[in-house]
Design a binder for these strands. Sequence first.
RNA 1: GGCGCGUUCGUCUAGUGGUCUAGGACGCUGGCCUCUCACGCCGGUAACAGGGGUUCGACUCCCCUACGCGCUACCA
Length: 545
Amino acid sequence: MTTMEFGLNKKQKVNIYNMTAPQVRVRFAPSPTGFLHIGGVRTALFNWLFARQHGGQFILRVDDTDQARNVHEALQPIMEGFKWLGIDWDEGPGMGGPHAPYFQSQRSDIYAEAVEKLLRDGFAYRDFSRQEEFAQERQAAEKEKRQFIYSRTWMAETDEDVRKYEAEGRESIVRLKMPREGKCEFHDLIRGDMSFEWAGEQDHVIQRKDGSCLYHLTSVVDDGAFEISHVIRAIEHLPNTPRQIFIAQSLGLELPVYAHLPFVAEPGSSNKLSKRKLDKYLKNRDFKVLYDHGASIAEKIGFSASPETFNPVIVDFYREIGFLPDAIVNYLLLLGWSLDDKTEEFTREAMIRDFSLERINKAPASFDPQKLTSFQSRYMWRLEMDEKLNMVLPFLEKAGFIAAPASTEAKSKVSAILEAANERISFAGDILDYAEFFQNDDQFDYEEKAFRKRLVNAEAQRELLGKLKVALPDVEDYSAENLDNFLHSFVEQEGVGMGMIVHALRVAITGKSVGFGLFEIMAIIGKDSCMNRIDRALQLVAQQQ
RNA sequence: GGCGCGUUCGUCUAGUGGUCUAGGACGCUGGCCUCUCACGCCGGUAACAGGGGUUCGACUCCCCUACGCGCUACCA
């Protein structure tokens, strides 16, 4: 076999969808890090959509060749994240499947067998070089500014070589015996026709001396074993593709169709998004706004997590503060893909129907916290009352504002708040902005600035408040509608404008200068509490003077 | 250093040689509405990285440069 034969033939190059594979089978292969990264979700989503669109399978494979310990614990958040987002897998952890196991750490025998085959067929060799010796060659090449290609000096070609090197006390690893002339050509569904010189490829290590195998080998072997038809993955794997094609062809495996996705970049930058650079991201205004918003919700429900594990790059963050999975998925869908010049909102059914690899962009897409938030708001506002209620109740329970199984009474109060607050609630956790509705009359806080401006430094308004308090007991129908009428006639009688009473009243009964409609506030709080709160506010002012 | 990928408003994008004085969305911003805030409505701001070709005509095709990113690991 000459080296030229490793390229794809013409037929394969124009093959957009894998005609030889009976089914679409795609995979997402996370390494168990303990976190589900937002960029990873997008990659998984594109795979998932492609599988669902073609009635194929989406497979979850765990790339844990590196870290065998605590895999279960580190995998849990990833699996839970996907489940929460509604991205389900047909084969993999927790699901089993015809090609189990789906953990690379449990597939060593299969990899070892593949290495043996490559060795036997002359596509790989045992290398007995010592690490220093190899490094020396590389450094020499670098010094002369020439491309490094291993001399294969310590390559064992015969059993005799092996014995000789072993007698010298050397240990061996297995390297790929890469072609050194010709080109590797393949078609990428997103990038088009690709061409790489074989000579630019290193003799990559595929098996360590302890027998464990490396990524390129395991990945290709598993893609083959799992009958993966399309490899849809991030662009950083594009340069890896030739060596993987070499392995696959050497093993006699059917090649998958490749599609390399652009990466997700940091907000306001073209660097790849990483969860390790939180400090840097927090300097980005939009990112910080989202983070702070989330952190304040977390604080109120007593959820303490370090920014390492709780930040907008990690999916858990959104779940903790009350995002809707559909909003996140819809946003991510549009990060590098679009249907046309106007459609932005997609139901799951619509995205499965309309998605196409061909319309994925080539350039990196940067993560925009503001736009994500805007999707979340729109999805939240649109929710039916009972759905909204279900989202919001756990937050009130965790914050200790209502008892664990919410009473009918509590539910109707929360519904009333939800209705009145309306578009003011974007994240479910935002309900905690209305703590004063759940706190005792003498317990909620007054915003200092508002208190001073609207009450302390507003004598006429305070007087009016006193008069109002006296008039309040006579209001029989304490509904928002009637309170509206009542208050209007009250100010009319007093010969002042609404502005004279509204602001002072709002601060007195909620402690805040902003909020939803004052009449709704009064109705929800109730007559007795309103009077108590007016008293308390006026007394506080008196104490201060 | 070598190889590869990329480059349209601040951001996500539409655009496949004339329909582009470049469209939509988020953001920002002026106004209206109004008891505050929010929503909503009306309006505004803002982009083809640079230079060469090809062509009657280039955001669209080709080349070069710049910049960004990735791979070049006994990481994935």
